[in-house]
């Protein structure tokens, strides 16, 4: 868990844009939908020719029903697809950028059991640039926000976040406030 400093206020928490998440989820969701559709189709209408083909050619199906065996395989495949979809969901929820009045924090899930977070103090920020690239990014207003610092840790990138310009303004305001206070 990230420990906030004394009197540190969280201004905003940013995750990737929902559209980016949906684009990542789409292929696996399509596969799952097709598997589910095919599963329901097979459940109600298992072609008789398939039944004959399986029982005549594969000896395993002399003792068990090919229909339910295929359905069992499909449901196991669905379970595997669900695990992959879960990984995408987890990355969306847990990869985030937190802007506080003193610093910016990047919390990243590198694998299911490995996470790291890096911070950058606002007084070390030298430059903030926003990059909106591509058709979807322009329409849905998401992009990259790049923070450059003077220290060894040179770049800090908010990847595909919604409203990058607004986020930039908030960071600049926080930076000014920090300077005034100091």
């Amino acid at each position: 868990m990230i420990k906030l400093r004394e009197n540190e206020k969280v201004y905003l928490i940013k995750r990737r844009h929902l559209m980016v998440f949906l684009i990542q989820l789409l292929p696996i969701a399509m596969i799952m939908f097709l598997l589910f559709f095919f599963l329901i189709f097979l459940l109600f209408t298992f072609p008789n020719s398939w039944q004959v083909f399986f029982t005549e050619n594969i000896s395993l199906f002399l003792s068990i029903s090919p229909k339910y065996f295929i359905l069992l395989l499909f449901s196991c495949l669905l379970m595997i697809c669900w695990q992959i979809a879960f990984l995408i969901i987890v990355h969306y929820f847990l990869d985030c950028w937190i802007v506080t009045d003193k610093r910016t924090i990047h919390y990243e899930l590198t694998s299911l059991f490995h996470r790291k977070y890096s911070t950058i103090d606002h007084d070390k920020i030298q430059d903030i640039t926003v990059k909106i690239q591509g058709f979807l990014a322009t329409i849905f207003k998401y992009g990259d926000l790049r923070i450059q610092t003077a220290g060894a840790f040179k770049e800090f990138i908010f990847k595909k976040i919604p409203d990058p310009y607004k986020t930039k303004e908030i960071i600049i305001k926080a930076q000014h406030k920090e300077k005034v206070e100091n």
């Binding site: 906030l4 969280v10 928490i13 929820f93 847990l94 937190i98």
Partner: peptide
Amino acid sequence: LRILPDISAVKI
């Protein structure tokens, strides 16, 4: 798992 004291991953 918790990111911040008030942000947890219980929902996930």
